[in-house]
Amino acid sequence: MTEPFEPAPSLDSPEEKARYDRGAAVLNAVDGGSAPAVMEALADIAPDLAHHIVAFGFGDIYARAGLDPKQRQLVTLGILTALGGCEPQLEVHVRTSLNVGLTPTEIVEALTHAAGYCGFPKALNAIFTAKKVFAARGLLPVGGETRTD
């Protein structure tokens, strides 16, 4: 017989709530509103993962001093491109990059730069992911269309 999921340790401590609240504020400032959908999608199977994405990813890491949001997004774009297979997350971060003030030209340049380090296939996947976001925002050059095939 398969055992049900065991409850995880509580994330309701004041410290965890503070980390989560700090992360939620940072995430809301840069994300543009798609984060709640991700958190809701995890609520039924991995609510703790949703908590950690916000508390650790944004409350601890993204909120650090030392890099501004544009610099953080350039790093994130490069890493997701190099990893490959992260196109859904890359799509979110291309949108976030635009939200924090990176231009389509800067994003394309960062993804093109990555080709020298991680290869053309991964850079191409990243460029086509960015193109999809740019098309949705009306940011493609005149005459540019996103292929759907």
Results as ranks from 00 to 15, higher is better:
117 Y>F: 13
21 D>A: 08
125 N>G: 14
21 D>F: 07
23 G>Y: 04
96 T>A: 04
1 M>W: 07
9 P>D: 09
57 G>L: 01
103 T>N: 07
97 S>A: 14
28 N>M: 05
57 G>H: 01
144 G>T: 15
110 A>F: 05
141 P>V: 03
135 A>N: 00
105 T>D: 11
69 P>V: 00
19 R>P: 02
32 G>M: 10
91 E>T: 00
40 E>P: 09
70 K>V: 01
108 V>W: 15
87 E>V: 07
16 E>M: 09
86 C>V: 15
55 A>V: 04
82 A>Y: 12
25 A>Q: 10
33 G>I: 03
80 L>I: 13
42 L>I: 09
12 D>E: 14
125 N>Y: 09
70 K>I: 03
31 D>C: 08
51 H>A: 07
94 V>H: 00
35 A>I: 15
137 R>I: 05
54 V>D: 01
109 E>G: 08
73 Q>D: 13
142 V>N: 14
65 A>R: 10
82 A>N: 14
49 L>S: 11
88 P>F: 08
24 A>W: 00
82 A>D: 14
140 L>N: 04
38 V>G: 01
135 A>C: 03
111 L>T: 03
73 Q>F: 02
78 G>N: 13
117 Y>I: 12
54 V>T: 10
64 R>H: 07
92 V>Q: 07
115 A>M: 11
149 D>R: 08
14 P>D: 15
86 C>T: 15
63 A>L: 05
51 H>S: 01
131 K>A: 02
15 E>W: 00
41 A>S: 10
35 A>T: 14
112 T>L: 14
1 M>L: 14
75 V>S: 11
131 K>W: 03
145 E>A: 15
123 A>H: 08
133 V>W: 01
44 D>F: 11
62 Y>C: 02
136 A>Q: 14
44 D>Q: 15
96 T>K: 00
35 A>Y: 07
2 T>D: 08
9 P>W: 08
110 A>M: 05
97 S>E: 00
144 G>A: 06
95 R>W: 10
108 V>N: 12
76 T>D: 12
38 V>T: 11
81 T>A: 11
149 D>G: 12
99 N>D: 03
99 N>S: 13
52 H>V: 09
120 F>A: 13
26 V>W: 02
7 P>I: 13
66 G>S: 06
8 A>K: 13
1 M>V: 13
110 A>S: 11
6 E>V: 11
51 H>D: 02
